[in-house]
Amino acid sequence: MVFRIADPFDALLDWQRALDSVRHSDWFGAGTASSGAFPPINVFRKEDDMVLIAEIPGADKNKIDIQVKDNQVRLSGKKEITRGDGVSVHRRERSSGEFDRVLTLPAEIDAGKVKAEYRNGILAVFLPRAESDKPRSITIG
């Protein structure tokens, strides 16, 4: 992937607006997607396609399972924390456990072309829109 330098402040403002609007929108419609479930997810549009980004720090990428069907994405897996024996804990803020969540997207996904990468604790799933779902221009004859 080739990235250009972005203005971080601009990107943040956009996020904030999206965050604020989410409470008043039913963009995802009815589904099992629930806000507050782990992992927290951001969805972006990249031309015709969508990119799902989730923060799962410290997960084993072999234990993250991604399933795509029609317009739904399911993320499940395990986030484990290994603590040694005989340690005394001074502070414990990190959480561990299992997660499983389904997200309903507003467009059909071409499941065969989905790509995912896990880097620096961030899971990115590239979700190409299905050809059958793309709008078509119609010429008036």
């Binding site: 996020w15 999206a18 951001n42």
Partner: peptide
């Protein structure tokens, strides 16, 4: 810069 060219649609975290 990883978020360049991406338009946010839905956000749960900052």
């Amino acid at each position: 810069s990883a978020y360049d060219n991406l338009e946010p649609l839905y956000a749960e975290y900052n």
